[in-house]
Design a protein around this nucleic acid. Sequence first.
DNA 1: CTGAAAGCGCTTACAG
DNA 2: CTGAAAGCGCTTACAG
Lengths: 343, 343
Amino acid sequence: MAKLTKAAGGRVTIRDVAAAAGVSVTTVSDALNNKGKLRQETRDRIRQTAESLGYRPSRTAQAFRHGRTGTIALVLPHRDVSGNEHDMIGLDYYMSIASGSARAAFGEGYGLLLTPRISTQNEWRLIGPDGVVLCDPAADDPRIDMLEGMAIPVVSIERDPARPDRPYYVSGDNEQNMRELLEHLHEQGARRIALLSASSSWAWTLEGEHAYETWCAEHDMRPRVVPVAVDRLESDSYRATCALLDTAEPPDALIASAEQYTEGATRACWERGVRIPQDLMLAVGIDSRFAQQYNPPITAIDLRPVDQAEAAVQMLLKRLGGETVDKPSTVPSQLRVRTSTRR
Amino acid sequence: MAKLTKAAGGRVTIRDVAAAAGVSVTTVSDALNNKGKLRQETRDRIRQTAESLGYRPSRTAQAFRHGRTGTIALVLPHRDVSGNEHDMIGLDYYMSIASGSARAAFGEGYGLLLTPRISTQNEWRLIGPDGVVLCDPAADDPRIDMLEGMAIPVVSIERDPARPDRPYYVSGDNEQNMRELLEHLHEQGARRIALLSASSSWAWTLEGEHAYETWCAEHDMRPRVVPVAVDRLESDSYRATCALLDTAEPPDALIASAEQYTEGATRACWERGVRIPQDLMLAVGIDSRFAQQYNPPITAIDLRPVDQAEAAVQMLLKRLGGETVDKPSTVPSQLRVRTSTRR
DNA sequence: CTGAAAGCGCTTACAG
DNA sequence: CTGAAAGCGCTTACAG
């Protein structure tokens, strides 16, 4: 019964397997995908045959058939540096998000596409992802509407601050993190804690600021929030830190919220001979190699980006599979206390 | 003649365009792809119709038809940090390679896949890229054979040092860069120039070392090469620099070849009160934000990673298109002289 | 110069 | 329990 036909073009197709196993392609497909009502024995035999022929289902054929591409696109924030567009993958946080997403996606049989800055529907159709992981959406981020309107589900890392009811996001508990950090600094004796905060509409920024202000009010402390641009390099955080240090009553502790502020803040201290932690305790809102390796090592909040990425991919796949997702996923962060805040 | 049938599933297909334009699907396909021998007028009219219907060819259908996926995979070096696999995208250099590749690929209608560490043919078949951009292959890198054996063309950024005849790579002119840097340091008065070199079989490392040794011989200078691991964080470069600085006759200039050595080298200097550039001129083999932003800013070689990525993607597409590529592509690097080496 | 038809490799109603 | 057939949206010989 088994016709021993070999595929011409080198590729082993489902037809070859069917021929070799002496069954129809339907049966092979069912056997391999656990569909239909075949005897376990038949399934096993067909799997054997497929295996021995080295059969691999064509991903493109499957994608075509299902109207899916088998890819997930990752969208990172961008910044303008002197007219040039850069994405921010250079930050340790986003790099962990990227490689974590790639790994998680691959584990589920998806490829992770890195997207350049694109904006139009046509461009998105060219990319053609089945779903999108969007990092740090702005308030009322138009990309969410555009993509969902194209039937491309979006899961964001951090929520869109202007869409309180949208459950499709993964985030850390930003308010809790800020409070925990403030408590720690307070315990260590800090009484004038300043905050370098990103001037953006990103959720973690807003939430962090809010927690900071609430906490200050509760502890009868004057809040000192200095807004710093997120889209430049370190010079802004450097200048902001200088300004703080040069006031009549400089802070005794400083929280630099964004990863990219770490360098500017440390430089300002270094130039002034401000010792860390003796003269100023320094903590960062997002952990990085720089924070770990600085001398002294800098206390930071580890947002667990790899876990966030994994959670985001999982949520996206749920949505792709038609399952309902009714609540966001929170990835617990971890405060890494280091020398920079220990007195 | 024009049947006004609309697609059922919402998608506008080539059939709809054909119907609306009153021609066959063949004609539509030819018109849109500049094939066949249609009157320009016909072409234009069909394009109009397609446009007005909002027709977008299905990427998956095209991919399926052509046996291509429309994706290029990017493979970055990996490192082990305490048993955890990380890719090295966190380095500014690789981050620029990644975003440059994504942009270049997209510009050509391809998606860029970020690949987690994968090793088997099966895993590669799952990813299913049409081609691969491989960064910093090791000597006789087995991934090249595996992929080319699967008919997946590979273009590397930097060459495989053990395959002198393989033309499929893009690189900077590493020997030239090293010589130029040495000349510069020499001009500035350096007479004892040490080199922190990556202990790897990567081409740029070997070439840099070779140029360094040749140059030293030519200038009657004792070479001082200190091998440093590439797969750790900054501690090794820190220790290596310490050892150099603590010798009886410490160097008056130091070249830290890898991007990730910058931090360790500067820390060692800082701790010892070694002033840059007064006591030690410091230069880095690969430019980074850190080098640009350090105080003082650090002289570095800008390998132009975005251009390298673009060249690699172009070369890969040439190969995919069946064109022959008979020689490697050299992207000229740029020495960025900064305060750290100016006396 | 243009069209009808085959086929890429799958999956999925549907018929038996 | 299994198979024959249609069809996903394209492209491409091939026929006229």
